[in-house]
């Protein structure tokens, strides 16, 4: 029996360098159609980057609005879409604040991140997590991770109140900057005196 859990992501804003490796890995793993990007890297505030995909929300709007009941929320928290049931109405695409469901023009159906369930079955983490060179993106179980230093949202991330996404963040700290001080010339030193 699959235990009830809350699979999600932990994202460290400070560590993301905007290399788009997660995007490429996702595309490569899931062979999504041209124009369909399940994971996207966007620019946030103060030179930060956000890597956003489906957040497998606690109250998924896509699940709620779908007239065909094509969405499933599994016991481990993963939200999946049964593309065979999808009628291509785009209601979920508009409802999701993170633009996670993506309309596939070729198949005339909506698809979305499936948390790499095939890899999960083999005990492997999602492709985007493995590809991240700086360790900014980590897969976690929110139910059992006592991370008190994390926050539910960061500036630039869409509103979390409606869907309660399964993602936590390490917030951005103030940037450390170092400057070389110019040595004062002899004449200035004299004037100072």
């Amino acid at each position: 029996m699959t235990k009830i859990s809350t699979k999600g992501f932990l994202f460290n804003v400070e560590r993301c360098i905007g290399c788009h490796a997660c995007e490429v890995a996702c595309k490569n793993e899931n062979k999504t159609a041209p124009g369909v990007q399940w994971r996207r890297v966007t620019e946030g505030e103060n030179g930060t980057y956000h890597s956003i995909s489906c957040n497998h929300c606690s109250s998924p709007e896509c699940f709620r609005v779908c007239p065909e009941n094509a969405y499933i929320k599994r016991r481990d928290g993963i939200v999946l879409i049964d593309s065979n049931r999808c009628a291509g109405c785009n209601t979920c695409v508009q409802a999701c604040p993170y633009h996670a469901p993506q309309f596939d023009l070729h198949q005339n159906r909506t698809t979305k991140c499936n948390y790499c369930i095939d890899r999960q079955r083999e005990g492997l983490p999602p492709a985007c997590v493995v590809a991240c060179p700086s360790g900014a993106l980590v897969n976690i179980d929110l139910k059992h991770l006592p991370l008190e230093s994390t926050v539910p949202t960061v500036p630039g991330f869409p509103d979390i109140r409606i869907t309660k996404p399964s993602i936590r963040f390490f917030p951005q700290k103030g940037k450390k900057r170092y400057w070389l001080k110019e040595e004062k010339s002899e004449s200035t030193k004299n004037t100072d005196l």
């Binding site: 029996m1 699959t2 009830i4 009941n69 499933i72 599994r74 016991r75």
Partner: peptide, 15 residues
């Protein structure tokens, strides 16, 4: 409770 909750979870998400 673990088994009961899993059943209720499936019930509440139409699984």
């Amino acid at each position: 409770r673990q088994y009961g909750d899993a059943f209720l979870y499936d019930l509440l998400y139409g699984n």
